[in-house]
Design a protein around this nucleic acid. Structure first.
Lengths: 205, 205
DNA sequence: CCTCCGTTAACCACTTCGGTTAATGTCAGC
DNA sequence: GCTGACATTAACCGAAGTGGTTAACGGAGG
């Protein structure tokens, strides 16, 4: 990773990063071509290798960037600073959409990167990650006020159901060609409303 | 498509078909290699081209096969021969798992094939499909007895939520390396129980 | 022994792979 | 106008992989 990359105009950096996210998100590491990334990013391949010293370094840079951005976004939108589950979902959605607008393929990249089977990647990523998903569940499960949730199903099952549906929705959006984030956001927001209707505790004093 | 392929022992046919499903499911059409398919299927590339006259023909054969298998499985498990939504889900799950056991990558293939952007494929598939997903919703929505479902959320929103969660679950299972269908089945079955608990009408006479 | 036929190793011309080299284009300072 | 430093790229490298073909092998039946 060459520090000259950071001296580029922001928009050019963004173009290159998004090109890389896109190509790596849609292909396995092995079959994602650096030429394709360079072309998509509007620069020559030589220049791409001038900024990132090889394919692997670029990939890992993207991974770290995604981690940082995600963490920042969660803080910025105060995702964990509420104990209302649905409010947390709404804030999480806002954070996610903000990111998706700026980095359309980042979340798809992240999802795939975690399960990348190329040994170099798998090893490098494995070291960086500390079972982040489980961590998140722990954090949330402790924070949430369950008195406002119906008591006949466990929070765990609600949580996992919500998580699966989110992933399914996002995946479908990507497959359909991930245009139109606004549509995604309203659709997702409607789904949160649905959950709020279904999972809240009705028989409160 | 050479009819000699059908004269092969069933298990060899299966091996080749599943190899092709796997490679096409995990890569875009363009980047899926016929050599890889042949190797994975345990035959030489020449023989593969002896059975299927080119890459495109193989792909479309797989698509048709998937359609037929899915339709058969639904009939075999009488998926649409009930008006209880959750029973329908359970039967659908059984059908799906039966298929997944025999053709592990078929459903992933199907999902991706529908959105394949290679023009040849997109065109050929587009002709074959008649918005099957919408059709399915219509069929189900008419059939289902809504008196046993809670009335404060629409069936449409329940249906789409269930669909998204299913897709999310399956996708995650694939990404994690799709071993162990039993685990998938019990996990899914637990989710159906969750839905049944959440969506049924409580205040019945 | 021969003929058939399933099967494949080897090959085809061509593209793409990750990565490099050598040469350009650009622009500030003199 | 000139120079030197840096940004940028066209062209190239050998290696590998592409879809697809060809010619030959191997073993069973007559």
């Amino acid at each position: 990773m060459n520090e000259k990359f950071y001296r580029l105009p922001q928009e050019k950096q963004l173009l290159i990063i998004n090109a890389a996210y896109k190509v790596f998100a849609r292909n396995s590491y092995k079959k994602a071509g650096t030429s394709e990334i360079a072309a998509e990013g509007g620069i020559s391949k030589a220049l791409l290798f001038h900024y990132f010293h090889n394919k692997l370094a670029l990939y890992l840079f993207l991974w770290d960037k995604a981690q940082d951005l995600t963490k920042e976004a969660k803080e910025q939108y105060k995702v964990y600073e509420t104990n209302d589950f649905f409010e947390m979902l709404r804030r999480g959605l806002s954070a996610k959409c903000m990111l998706m607008r700026k980095y359309p393929y980042m979340s798809l990249f992240t999802m795939n990167a975690y399960y990348e089977n190329e040994p170099e990647i798998h090893e490098a990523i494995g070291k960086k990650v500390k079972s982040g998903a489980d961590d998140a569940y722990q954090t949330i499960a402790e924070k949430i006020n369950r008195d406002s949730l119906r008591g006949d199903v466990t929070f765990e099952s609600i949580y996992s159901e919500v998580l699966f549906a989110s992933e399914g929705m996002m995946n479908q959006w990507y497959r359909a060609g991930n245009r139109d984030i606004d549509t995604f956001e309203t659709q997702y927001r409607r789904m949160i409303e649905h959950w709020e209707q279904v999972y809240n505790r009705k028989d409160q004093p």
